[in-house]
Amino acid sequence: MKARAAVLLLCAVSAALRAEEPDWFDSFKGRAFLQGDASFVAREKAAPPDAPPLFRARWVILRYAAFTEEWRRFWPSRNLLLVTMPSGAQYVLESSLGHIDEKHLEEEQPWYRVASKRTAFEVWALGWTPGYDPSSPDAASTPPCDGMRNRVRAPGGTLEYFVDDFGSRTVRASLAEIAAGTFDEDERRDLAVLLKMSVESDRSLGDFLAFHLRDSLQAGYIAFLDQLQPRDKRTVVFEPDPADPADLSSWRALVHLPFNLAPFPAPPPFPPPKGGVN
């Protein structure tokens, strides 16, 4: 009887802890599929062709079968940029859309993440309020925390900020402190190179790939907002990696990569069927 009580207590404590600190990977469940896969080397624009790459990157999108087939277009996705530095250090930059429970839209959702083998800087999205307009005269009378917000969780600290305040001094200074307390000197130096990536002007990538690469890099832009270079000073570009892509097993632990990734079939035509996804 005592043992049972102890187990129940453990479960209750564990549930309470989960309620306070949601797990990033809880939103990505079900069979996983691979939607995109491309490999690159990153070089300075002006570097000679035989110069060693600044880093190698593998881009993949994972889709998770959270809903029925006809809703496949809206399955949760993880847009991942897997970066390997010449030192062997690995980083993952991620922009993601998790499983959204339509009955609980107030719950926070995974949004952006930068992780090394040692640490992670996570950005969650919360506060989606239909019809909310912070600039309307009525906004002053609404509760002070209503509206679209991001919540940063990292070993270096936490911060909840409104999306509209992203560029404010308060948010910039707090993000810089959190990043400084999360990543060590080597990690900060490695990740700073990613802030110099020029993806916008590279037409060879195509719209779909350019969009997703840019979106994965956003995770680094948030963490290191104070060091972000203006676009005309971003001088590092991606080139296709001539080497054969290795299997993804070396990323399994860092990325929480599922086994047996089948190709993601093209989604059925729009519009989706009537009714909810849940």
């Binding site: 912070p134 002070p144 001094r169 308060t170 200074a173």
Partner: peptide, 19 residues
């Protein structure tokens, strides 16, 4: 929570002070 005075009317500051 740390903030700059110039941002005191921003929702981010209001929300965090409220917390």
């Amino acid at each position: 929570f740390r903030y700059f005075d110039v941002d005191v009317t921003r929702l981010t500051v209001r929300c965090n002070l409220s917390r």
